[in-house]
């Protein structure tokens, strides 16, 4: 689909000729993507570009925006890393061990994909509220989860978990046990086998999973808006800030912060693709 520079009528003719030869699925694909995806993205970027660099910078780095980035990105990173560790553990247990309930556990891992985010937020807010099932156990310790930044973290843990497990599972399944056996029979201890033999090939998949989970957690709105208090400078995340700006008809503010979020997601997508290319080195 490369359209060369067309100036003279004959190349116009050729271009038209080429377009009329494009098959129907191609045309549907490009027209639909243009209307649904490219047009909205361009609208956002052009709207942002009319703001002017100074004003853009001022809004993008205002105190409330900076604190929202902090809550969003730092919490998402910490929770993605926690899920990196526990996701590896869960994937390992699912692939390597047989125990009662393994199949159900395997199926339920996908629940955060399937459960609407509003329901996730509702139930997490209830379970972790001071009189909820888990919240009531934490309350005597002085830990409050619902309507605090910890609530944001719990919601992010919930939604980003499947990414790590599902990225690691196939890699673990394909790993050859002979290598482990060789390491062990050559005298490596359990820990040495884990750190030196098992972990290195898993690192790209683990990082990919963490990055996917992070990317999802950064954009999450539904569950967090319900479980958090959405108080500026405390637990207000960037997507909620965009939403609030829109509700106040502050289109410029919403556009600027929305553009920052969009650019971050595009960079993350690029990073994830690079990570996956790196991970493919281990495929045979």
């Amino acid at each position: 689909m490369t359209f060369s520079q067309t100036s003279d009528p004959s190349s116009w003719q050729r271009l038209r000729d080429r377009i009329s030869h494009i098959s129907l699925p191609w045309r549907v694909t490009w027209i639909y993507l243009s209307i649904m995806l490219f047009l909205p993205t361009i609208a956002l970027l052009l709207r942002a570009s009319t703001t002017g660099p100074a004003r853009f910078w001022e809004i993008a780095t205002s105190d409330i925006a900076l604190s929202a980035y902090n809550v969003t990105f730092v919490t998402a990173l910490v929770t993605a890393l926690i899920n990196g560790v526990f996701g590896l553990l869960i994937a390992w247990v699912l692939v390597r061990y047989e125990f009662p309930g393994r199949r159900i556990m395997d199926a339920v891992i996908d629940l955060p994909f399937a459960l609407p985010t509003a329901v996730a937020g509702l139930t997490l807010a209830t379970v972790y509220s001071p009189n909820g099932w888990i919240g009531s156990l934490l309350a005597p310790l002085g830990i409050r989860v619902s309507f605090t930044r910890l609530g944001v973290a719990v919601a992010m843990l919930f939604i980003s978990l499947p990414f790590v497990v599902r990225t690691l599972q196939p890699v673990l399944q394909e790993m050859e046990r002979e290598i482990e056996e060789a390491a062990w029979s050559l005298g490596a201890s359990q820990w040495q086998t884990f750190w030196r033999v098992l972990l290195p090939p898993l690192v790209p998949a683990m990082l990919t999973g963490v990055a996917l989970g992070f990317s999802r957690a950064v954009g999450e709105y539904g569950s967090i808006v319900i479980v958090a208090g959405n108080i500026p400078f405390q637990d207000l995340i960037a997507p909620v800030l965009v939403f609030q700006r829109l509700e106040q008809f502050d289109y410029v503010g919403a556009t600027v912060i929305g553009t920052v979020m969009l650019v971050v997601s595009l960079l993350l997508l690029l990073g994830i693709n690079l990570l996956q290319a790196w991970g493919r080195r281990y495929e045979f």
Binding site: E220, A238, V240, V242, M261
Partner: peptide, 8 residues
């Protein structure tokens, strides 16, 4: 982010 999609 779905919110950014809505904004667009």
């Amino acid at each position: 982010s779905p919110v950014v999609a809505g904004l667009m």
